[in-house]
């Protein structure tokens, strides 16, 4: 009978067992040395995913750059809730650009720092999905093409939530918004429209493109830290559920982000120089109904006569993501 080392506690869990291990053996969820870059006291809604994602992203960027960081911020929820005049919640130098030119403003800052020889100071641009995929897309594409030394972070909540939930080009198909009402034969947003900006960013062959969700903060921190270690144009898209626009209870923000990843609706991957290098595999594959049902913006799919055809189309999109990015473990 061979001897086996006894383990009194499970390793790799989130619970007390992890804390009993030596620090280097712990599977940490997030960095304990947080800098509170987005301080409490901001005016975000209850359960705002964007407030959580922005804080972790900027925290990680601050830690990675030894707090030598300047941020340009597009108009949007993030700008409105964090900086009502004359107050601010940010602990970094922060500039509010117009809605559409965040990438251009960040490019200018990077160029100025280059001329002044301040190579230790880094630039981050951030915006919502409206300011990134619709209004600011020209400037963003120019920034990618010139390969300026900027990390662009897009917080994707699938619409213009700040102005009353209008459709953006990142709104998923069949979702009800104020401008795509649930009426007619094909209720909600139209299939086959919109764009997935990480794929467009990959087509520019910039050094680093990644997607992340607020459900896996360790992954998010890792990706931001890795991006700040590189030079050139980098792009990270973070899925941030919006309780107001998605019609979910405020307590379900993290759960919805996790379901988006587990159903394959939102692929979580990273790509370098235009090629996918790593994906976050799906742990337990779920049908898209699990993701759609809790959200009121999809309530018209689950009425008296469920729209089985529409749900099947969304499932087909998720399956396509899973095939394209190889999100499942081999053999499942």
């Amino acid at each position: 009978m061979s001897l086996q080392p006894i383990k009194f506690y499970q390793t790799g869990t989130f619970t007390v067992g992890n804390r009993l291990l030596a620090p280097e053996e712990r599977s940490v969820q997030a960095n304990m040395q947080r800098t509170n870059s987005l301080n409490s006291g901001h005016r975000a809604c209850q359960g705002c995913g964007e407030a959580l994602g922005a804080r972790y992203a900027i925290d990680a960027a601050m830690n990675a750059t030894n707090r030598q960081l300047i941020a340009a911020n597009a108009t949007g929820c993030l700008e409105v809730f964090s900086t009502p005049y004359p107050e601010t919640s940010w602990q970094i130098p922060w500039i509010h650009s117009l809605f559409g030119n965040t990438a251009a403003v960040a490019t200018g800052m990077a160029a100025a720092l280059k001329v002044k020889g301040r190579s230790e100071v880094r630039v981050v641009a951030q915006g919502g999905d409206g300011g990134t995929t619709d209004i600011g897309f020209g400037c963003l594409s120019g920034m990618f093409e010139r390969n300026d030394d900027v990390l662009y972070i897009c917080y994707d909540n699938g619409g213009y939530m700040n102005t009353g939930v209008q459709r953006s080009s990142a709104t998923p198909p069949a979702a009800r918004t104020a401008t795509t009402m649930a009426v007619g034969d094909a209720p909600g947003n139209v299939f086959g429209q919109g764009k997935f900006v990480p794929a467009i960013a990959m087509a520019h062959e910039i050094p680093y493109v990644a997607t992340a969700t607020v459900a896996d903060l360790r992954d998010l921190e890792y990706k931001v830290t890795k991006a700040m270690g590189m030079h050139g144009a980098r792009y990270i898209q973070i899925l941030v559920p919006c309780p107001l626009g998605w019609g979910t209870p405020s307590s379900d923000t993290i759960r919805m982000a996790r379901l988006a990843k587990e159903t394959g609706v939102f692929p979580v991957f990273e790509a370098e120089n235009g090629e996918v290098t790593a994906v976050l595999k799906i742990r337990k594959r779920l049908p898209v109904e699990e993701y759609l049902k809790p959200q009121k913006r999809y309530a018209h799919l689950f009425g008296k006569q469920p729209r089985v055809d529409t749900i099947a189309s969304i499932q087909a999109l998720a399956d396509k993501n899973i095939r394209k990015y190889k999100l499942l473990e081999e053999g499942i």
Binding site: G41, H42, R43, Y85, P86, E87, T88, S89
Partner: peptide, 15 residues
Amino acid sequence: CPIATEYSKMMPGDW
């Protein structure tokens, strides 16, 4: 220019 030089003092606990 005195824009956004104060910390947000709001205490949203009463929401």
